[in-house]
Structure formats: C-alpha cells, structure tokens
Simulated assay, not measured.
Amino acid sequence: MHHIMGYSWDEIMAMVTIFATVGGGLIWLLHLAIKSGTEGISNKLSQLINQVDSLNHMMSLIESTANRTTRRVDTLEDRFEEHEGNAKVRNQRITALEKEIFRYENSK
C-alpha cells in the first residue's frame, strides 16, 4: 500500500474530510456573523438616510417660510416708509398752517 508522509490513503482522506467539515463550519459561522452584523448596520444606515431626508425636507420648509417672511417684512417696510413720508408731509402742512394761523391771530 502507498503511504504519503507516513499516512495511508484512508487516513489522508479522513483528515481532509475533517478539515473540510471544520473549515466549512467556520466559513458558515463567519458568513452568518458578517451577514447579521451588516444587517444591523444596514438597518441603522437606512434609518440615518431616512432621517437625513426628513431633515432635508424640514430645512426646505423652513427656508420657504423664511423667504415668505422676508418678503412680507420687505412689503411692510415699504408700506411703513410710505406712511412715514405721508406723515412728514402732513406734519409740514400742519406746521405751515399753525404758522399761518398764529400770524393771522398776532396781526389782529
């Protein structure tokens, strides 16, 4: 019978079978650990992506609201300046009328 490194063919085949079985089991366990570990990471990552999308949507809404508020403030400032100008004109007219009335009363 032939021997390789002091082992017979049936002993070599038994060792190969044992190593293949143990190696296959280790590979299966490693695959299972990696798969379950990455599923958790994948779930957390998808949650993070959803939260970032939600935050992006919320920021867009806030920006839209801020733009509308800015436009409204600008409109109100324009109206205020218009009213302020009208008030200055009225004050000047009142001052002119007061001077005219007091001059008229003083001349009597």
Rank of each mutant, 00 (worst) to 15 (best):
Phe19Leu: 02
Leu26Gly: 00
Val89Cys: 02
Glu82Tyr: 15
His2Arg: 07
Asp10Asn: 13
Gly40His: 09
Thr75Phe: 15
Val16His: 03
Ile41Arg: 15
Thr95Ile: 08
Arg79Val: 03
Leu30Asn: 13
Ile18Glu: 11
Glu100Lys: 09
Val16Gln: 09
Lys44Ile: 11
Arg93Phe: 04
Asp10Cys: 01
Arg68Pro: 01
Glu100Phe: 06
Val89Gly: 07
Trp28Ser: 09
Ser107Ile: 09
Gly23Phe: 08
Gln92Tyr: 01
Arg103Ser: 13
His57Ser: 15
His57Ile: 15
Leu61Lys: 13
Leu26Trp: 09
Ile101Met: 00
Ile41Trp: 15
Asn50Ile: 06
Gln51Ser: 07
Leu76Val: 05
Leu45Arg: 11
Ile62Tyr: 04
Asn106Lys: 03
Val73Ala: 10
Leu32His: 07
Asn91Gly: 10
Thr38Val: 05
His57Tyr: 15
Phe19Ala: 02
Ser107Pro: 00
Asp78His: 08
Arg103Glu: 10
Ile94Tyr: 06
Gln92Phe: 06
Asn106His: 00
Glu82His: 14
Gly6Cys: 00
Thr38Gly: 00
Met59Asn: 14
Ser54Gly: 09
Asp10Ala: 11
Leu76Tyr: 01
Ile12Asn: 02
Ala96Glu: 14
Ile4Gly: 10
Leu76Asn: 08
Asn43His: 15
Glu11Leu: 07
Leu97Thr: 08
Lys35Val: 06
Met5Gln: 10
His3Pro: 06
Ile27Glu: 07
Trp28Glu: 06
Ser54Pro: 09
Asn43Lys: 14
Asp53Cys: 09
Thr95Cys: 13
Arg93Gln: 12
Ile62Pro: 07
Val22Cys: 10
Asp78Arg: 12
Ser8Cys: 03
Ile49Thr: 11
Gly6Met: 01
Arg71Asp: 07
His2Asn: 00
Trp9Thr: 01
Glu84Pro: 07
Asn67Gly: 02
Ser60Thr: 04
Ile49Gln: 12
Ile18Ala: 12
Asp78Tyr: 13
Thr38Asn: 02
Tyr104Met: 05
His31Cys: 04
Phe102Arg: 12
Gly6Ser: 00
Leu97Gln: 07
Ser107Asn: 02
Leu55Asn: 02
Ala33Glu: 08
Ala14Arg: 08
Val89Arg: 11
Ile34Phe: 12
Leu26Tyr: 02
Glu98Ser: 05
Gly85Asn: 04
Ser46Val: 01
Ile49Met: 08
Lys88Ser: 08
Leu32Trp: 12
Ala33Asn: 10
Leu61Trp: 14
Met59Pro: 05
Gly24Cys: 06
Ala33His: 12
Asn50Phe: 08
Leu30Tyr: 15
Ile101Lys: 05
Ile41Lys: 15
Lys99Ile: 13
Asn91Ile: 13
Glu39Gln: 12
Ile62Thr: 07
Glu11Ile: 09
Thr21Phe: 10
Gly40Leu: 12
Gly24Ile: 01
Val16Ile: 04
Ile41Leu: 14
Asn50Ser: 05
Glu84Leu: 11
Ala33Ile: 13
Trp9Arg: 06
Ala20Lys: 04
Asp74Phe: 14
Asp53Tyr: 10
Leu32Ser: 03
Asp78Ala: 06
Ile101Ala: 00
Met58Val: 14
Arg93Leu: 10
Met5Asp: 08
Arg79Lys: 05
Gly40Val: 07
Gly85Cys: 03
Tyr104Glu: 00
Glu100Tyr: 10
Met1Pro: 09
Thr75Ala: 14
Ile12Glu: 01
Ala96Val: 02
